[in-house]
């Protein structure tokens, strides 16, 4: 199975990491690595997630993450 890298801008608020990692767990997607750090904007954090999955999983990850209100943008 291939690896997928997702770069997210998220709201910098407690619980956001749980919300995002829970989505991966709930949908059955395995995370290979996850890194999160603050940015120069105190309201925004950046997240880099590498996860296992095929094209189907990739599309689902993008679309399901896109529904979370704490996710500002996905690259």
């Amino acid at each position: 199975m291939g690896k997928i890298q997702l770069n997210l801008s998220v709201v910098n608020r407690f619980g956001v990491l749980v919300r995002i990692s829970e989505l991966f767990a709930r949908r059955g997607f395995n995370i290979s690595s996850l890194e999160v750090h603050e940015t120069s904007d105190p309201d925004v954090s950046e997240m880099t997630i590498v996860a296992y999955g095929d094209d189907y999983a990739h599309t689902q990850m993008l679309r399901q993450l896109g529904k979370l209100h704490d996710v500002i943008s996905i690259k």
Partner: peptide
């Protein structure tokens, strides 16, 4: 209305 439902 929910893109995540398409092809799910």
């Amino acid at each position: 209305i929910d893109a995540a439902e398409l092809d799910k």
